[in-house]
């Protein structure tokens, strides 16, 4: 009995600071957003802030955000999955090294790396100079949605590569061999063995690319030249330009619907609670 009591206090002492911290800085702030989003300036209940999303200017930006983030997620998956398969097939002894190679760019400020893409994609930039040198016509992609997708894919690709690679690297070679011994061809082995086992990695990769792409405002500001407003840009403006916290919170609540959908999506597939598999 005494031991049980002691264990309880141990638990409380260890988890207490964490629970207090997360309660104060994660849970309560979310309720404050909910409060501002559902009230007007005088504190009375209203749905006006949330309904703002139906105004054409906001609706257009939300649809553009959804479209571009879907593109960037899909492109990241199409690049990362074959890459992870190739890395797995090399059977590297030093797996940490390969992980480091893909994390290393993240230690250079992401805004700066995004700005470097300006220099590459500009009309007189590195890419076009190179294309012209080869006798092709230059592309004009800067300040278009395509430039923003390039920025998103670039910034968030490591978040797709790492979880997908981690889940693929864990698959036992004997399982693959067994599948082949039992008469499955390569395609069947992939569909029935490799793909299902790598699904948790794919799912966490998808959310880790989709959510930041959907909600970014810096990438669209830099590579869209302020001409392509995503929903994140409008939320930022409401808070830091117009100081309209009610409208900003209302738009954020709309955004949170999509976040909740993707959280539910993760919970459904990630039953073992492995977290994000990033490291």
């Amino acid at each position: 009995m005494k031991n049980k009591k002691k264990a309880f206090w141990n638990q409380a002492l260890l988890s207490g600071p964490y629970l207090l911290w997360m309660g104060l800085f994660i849970l309560i702030p979310l309720f404050i957003v909910l409060y501002y989003g559902l009230t007007d300036g005088s504190g009375a209940f209203t749905l006006e802030n949330v309904k703002k999303i139906s105004e054409p200017i906001y609706m257009r930006s939300l649809l553009l955000s959804l479209k571009l983030s879907l593109y960037s997620t899909l492109i990241c998956l199409l690049i990362a999955y074959p890459l992870a398969m190739v890395l797995r097939s090399l059977h590297l002894k030093n797996q940490n090294l390969i992980v480091m190679v893909f994390i290393l760019p993240m230690w250079i400020n992401f805004l700066l790396r995004t700005i470097a893409w300006l220099t590459i994609l500009e009309n007189n930039g590195v890419l076009n100079s190179f294309l012209r040198l080869l006798g092709f016509q230059g592309l004009s992609i800067i300040n278009t949605p395509a430039a923003i997708v390039v920025g998103m894919v670039y910034d968030f690709l490591p978040f797709m590569i790492l979880p997908v690679y981690n889940s693929l690297a864990k698959i036992d070679d004997n399982l693959v061999a067994a599948s082949k011994d039992l008469g499955a061809n390569s395609l069947q082995t992939f569909r029935r063995v490799i793909l299902p086992l790598s699904l948790p990695g794919i799912i966490s990769g998808i959310t880790m690319v989709f959510i930041p792409s959907l909600t970014t405002f810096a990438i669209s500001q830099i590579l869209g030249g302020g001409k392509q407003n995503l929903i994140g840009n409008f939320i930022e403006q409401q808070f830091l330009l117009y100081y309209d916290w009610n409208a900003g919170s209302g738009l954020s609540l709309v955004l949170m619907i999509f976040i909740l959908i993707s959280m539910a999506f993760v919970a459904k597939f990630d039953k073992k609670q492995e977290g994000t598999n990033l490291w």
């Binding site: 979310l30 957003v33 405002f217 994140g232 939320i235 954020s252 976040i259 959280m263 994000t276």
Partner: peptide, 11 residues
């Protein structure tokens, strides 16, 4: 981890 940075930021 799953929430958008911008929502965490404004909250």
């Amino acid at each position: 981890m799953l929430n958008a940075d911008i929502v965490t930021a404004i909250s």
